[in-house]
Design a protein around this nucleic acid. Structure first.
Length: 648
RNA sequence: GCCCGAGUAGCUCAGCGGUAGAGCAGGCGCCUUGUAAGCGUCAGGUCGUCGGUUCGAACCCGACCUCGGGCUCCA
């Protein structure tokens, strides 16, 4: 028979040949790294027979689809290990996920896994791998499947779902058997045998609700990771360590930036002087840029009577995410969860003319949201935070241009903060929506054209918009490749109506303005955390709380060091001096740990020559005898340019 | 909210039924240092909170508080 390869080449194989045979025919190395084949695009086991005339691609372990298969097979091995160690355990689902896999179990007697159990399970898994058990596919009818998994209620539920489901293979189910005792319901494909696995590690235990539903039983989940080689596994584990090293909560206390006092409450941070300084620098820069871009600054209160949130609709669909109200003089006052209703009231303070549009209102508005305790996560997910929030009101013919310049503005500021690797998402009208479909179309088209003008990669998330607005979400990748959602642009099709907003047009008629919500940092706290993690605490010089530290070699050089520091301060730099009570090495070390960009050392030679020794963050070589004026100029240039890396 | 784990000096952690420990940080003294930890000394704790078991609790049990991980990724 004839098989076509993805590059168009044809191979003649004997009838009944399998994917494994094909891989072997192409080459030995391919055969070794093959985990499955794609037959006309559909993933199939290596052991399955191929059909004449098919187009077949070999999936290798070092590709993302290949790793998914490895991970999926490893999950089965884990399930087998668990069922051996806990006889009577029920196993639910065990899919591959990004960078790994998990499997959910229900242990007999409601037992729970502990961290120590992971080692035992891993050990048993290694035995299973060493035993080189085959993955043998079995096809069953639904009735047979229900019989096979008679004592596995979760599997039975899945099978029943398949039967009712969207035409899934005419009510057939498949299972993969490793041993006489262990078989798992599975769509496949899988690696041919367990010896193809082995580069894995179990990472953590967690609880998860069956099918993610709080109303259903809570299962015990084990997360693990698996890779095609020991080296790839090692790299992944190293990435995890790196992420931990960059954790903003850890750096936040090491660098004395902020903390969460329990006395205040969960998710409510306080910024220390150094963190406050960084935040002020971010805000100052943002304010200046907004001013230059034609925004007007407004200030609104932190609490509001219920009436406002009834008009905006927040009380209707957002109440459980809000702090409960205080009763005062017969009214209920809520801490605000959003700034937009108040900005609308600024708009509505008087009649508006088309000549005033676009009206761009900006505020660092602090909002409070009652996040569930379990989802709080440092500054990334807090209960009180400050949005750099703006609302733009414009006419329909201004919408497209406004969105395009808005997006360009957003991207420019993000780039200044050193985040330049963008991916955007355009979320379109969901199934449940409010408003006029034609308006949705206009708004969505305007967002799309803004994205196209900005020339950044974007994907369309069909039906993912909020029910009142299509939107653009901007994601950035940080220094270690993690993706963060930051800015959002939404065209609100709901609020202008709810608040009956209008302006008087050139035609002397009344018109409804468009309203655009836009948060650039999202929340300042969250963006602060992303920067800390992106830079691993080593903020660029323009954002560093202390930009320069001067170290006199001995106390004899103190006066000179102070003179240098004063000179640099007069030049507008933030400078500290570390007195000579400790050894120079110890002070250098301290300055390095505190991530000060420039460490200057001043000794005898320098006093005579008006110079300093310059130890620059991230630069191996120390430069001796640098004139203070030269150093100052270089650092100032770096700060003025808001460069992301130290240089001088 | 629910499950698992953790709360001992400012920080990181040891101790896990029998009188509270170390390193770092901090105070003081000595040292006067040329690029990532000089030496000594002192101080610092109701062992998260409340209750229980026990002759005796940091340790065992319960409740609460706080923190960390997880609760969409369909067999």
């Amino acid at each position: 028979m004839t098989i076509t390869l993805p590059d168009g080449a044809r191979r003649e194989l004997p009838a009944g040949a399998t994917g494994a045979d094909l891989a072997a025919a192409v080459g030995r190395r391919l055969a070794e790294s093959a985990v499955a084949v794609l037959v006309d695009g559909a993933p199939v086991d290596l052991t399955g027979p191929l059909a004449d005339g098919a187009t077949v691609a070999v999936v290798t372990a070092d590709s993302e689809p290949g790793r998914r298969i490895l991970r999926h097979s490893t999950a089965h091995v884990m399930a087998q290990a668990v069922t051996q160690l806990w006889p009577g355990a029920r196993y639910a689902i065990g899919p591959p996920i990004e960078d790994g896999f998990y499997y959910d179990f229900e242990l007999p007697g409601g037992a729970h896994f502990s961290d120590e159990d992971l080692g035992r399970i891993e050990e048993r898994m290694r035995e299973i791998v060493a035993a080189d058990q085959p993955f043998v596919r079995e096809d069953h009818t639904v009735a047979e499947g229900l019989e096979l998994f008679a004592d596995q209620p979760y599997k039975r539920e899945i099978i029943e779902g398949v039967d009712a489901g969207e035409g899934a293979a005419e009510g057939a189910v498949s299972a993969y058997r490793n041993t006489a005792d262990f078989v798992d319901l599975c769509r496949g494909p899988h690696v041919p045998s367990t010896s193809r696995l082995g580069h894995f590690k179990l990472l953590k235990v967690a609880a998860a609700y069956w099918r993610g539903d709080e109303q259903r039983p809570q299962l015990q989940r084990i997360y693990g990771t698996a890779w095609e080689s020991e080296a790839a596994l090692g790299e992944h584990l190293h990435r995890l360590e790196e992420a931990e090293r960059r954790d903003h909560r850890r750096l936040g206390s090491e660098l004395d930036l902020f903390h969460f006092p329990p006395e205040i409450g969960s998710g409510l941070p306080v910024f220390h002087p150094k963190g406050g300084l960084v935040r002020k620098l971010m805000e100052d820069y943002s304010r200046a840029e907004h001013e230059a871009a034609g925004y007007e600054f407004v200030y609104t209160p932190h609490i509001t009577k219920a009436a406002l949130l009834e008009i905006s609709g927040h009380l209707g669909w957002y109440a459980e995410g809000m702090y409960p109200p205080m009763e005062l003089e017969g009214s209920a006052y809520y801490p605000k969860p959003m700034n937009c209703p108040m900005h609308i009231l600024v708009y509505k303070a008087r009649q508006r003319s088309y000549r005033e549009l676009p009206l761009r209102l900006f505020e660092f508005g602090t909002v409070y949201r009652f996040e569930r305790s379990g989802v709080l996560n440092g500054l990334l997910r807090a209960r009180g935070f400050t949005q750099d929030d703006s609302h733009i009101f414009c006419s329909s013919d201004q919408l497209e241009g406004e969105l395009a310049s808005l997006l360009a503005f957003v991207l420019r500021l993000l780039r200044t903060f050193g985040l330049a690797d963008f991916e955007a998402e355009l979320s379109t009208r969901p199934e449940k929506y409010v408003g006029d479909p034609e308006e949705w179309e206009v708004a969505t088209a305007a967002l799309r054209s803004a994205l196209e003008a900005a020339r950044i990669p974007f994907v369309v998330a069909e039906g993912e918009g909020a029910f009142y607005a299509p939107k653009i979400d901007v994601h950035v990748r940080d220094a270690i490749g993690r993706r963060w959602q930051v800015s959002t642009l939404q065209v609100d099709l709901q609020m202008p109506q709810r608040f009956d907003m209008e302006y008087v047009g050139a035609d002397n008629g009344r018109h409804r303005p468009y309203m655009v919500h836009r948060a650039l940092f999202g929340s300042i706290e969250r963006f602060f955390a992303i920067l800390i993690e992106h830079y691993a605490g080593a903020l660029p010089t323009w954002l560093a709380p202390e930009q320069v530290r001067v170290l006199p070699v001995t106390s004899d050089h103190h006066a000179y060091a102070d003179r240098v520091a004063d000179r640099l301060r007069a030049d507008g730099l933030r400078v500290g001096v570390a007195s000579a009570d400790e050894t120079l090495g110890s002070r250098v070390r301290r300055a390095k740990l505190e991530k000060v960009p420039y460490v200057l050392v001043a000794g005898d030679e320098d006093v005579d020559a008006g110079t300093v020794g310059v130890n620059t963050r991230g630069v191996q070589r120390v430069r001796r005898g640098v004139a203070v004026s030269e150093l100052s100029e270089a650092v100032r240039a770096e700060v003025a340019g808001r460069l992301a890396t130290t240089g001088a």
